[in-house]
Design a protein around this nucleic acid. Sequence first.
DNA 1: CATATGTCCTGAGAGC
DNA 2: TGCTCTCAGGACATAT
Length: 283
Amino acid sequence: MPELPEVETMRRGVAPIAGSRIVDVHFPRCRLKPILVNPSRRSLRRRLEGLQIAAVERIGKRIVLKLSGDQVGGHALVIEPRMTGLVLLADPPNTEHLRLGLKLDAEEIPWLWFWDRRGLGTVQLFSDEEFADRLGPRYLGPDALQVTADELRDRFRSSQREIKVALLDQKSLAGIGNLYASEILHVAKVHPQQRCHRLTRTRWQSIHEAMQMVLTEAIRYEGSTLGDGTYRNALNQTGSYQNHHRVYNRAGDACPCCEDQVIERIVQAQRSTFFCKQCQRRR
DNA sequence: CATATGTCCTGAGAGC
DNA sequence: TGCTCTCAGGACATAT
């Protein structure tokens, strides 16, 4: 489940391809249902060939390759890993789930791969205009690492939703997913079922502070590789933040904060939430 | 408009 | 052993 820390780790790992030129576009044959690409594979191949990768960026949970060298204006290739997608410079975990390869003109980095076991990921080429719309404020909120405490509060304070569910809404705030929502609320000592409009300014400050702290810490450990072992950085190495999770997937364990209660698992919006009912009391 | 629910996808693991 | 079933949660479509 690549969320902001995992995608940022991918971005950093892939950043060295900036300046390279795409010399070939390869769609490996695959027995599985093909992933969504836009436009078609044929036109993607035609349009990408020869373009230069000007920059490697991240917006929320997406990797953005800014492209230049096109006569008809700027483009961006947007890769959404969703559940199990990986952006790799190293050889992928297997060839069975390989979805896309960009052959580059750099000798030391010959390939950029997109690998995706479950195939929910997408690869889309946007013109600058399409890009500004589809990844702009109409569809995406501010990045969770850029947002200020005041803006965070302003965006959620009138919502009737439970805070944990609201944090997953990418239109309100980009980058938080199911794992980090639980982790952030535990550090902030906020109950996941608290309704947004009932939270005080002080609570929003705590959430903001916890968010910066947890995301920064998770990036330092190169993200979380869960039990299924799927998530890897660009060099196909596991992250290690899973060893530092306070609550996620830790139902029944002692709370690392109070060491008194055990972590509970509940379901919100069909997703697991983990929390400590003592440290995260409703107030 | 805001919010809730269903859907896609694969492979692992449980239960029989 | 091999079958069927459930579950994991990204983003989006559709329903309320």
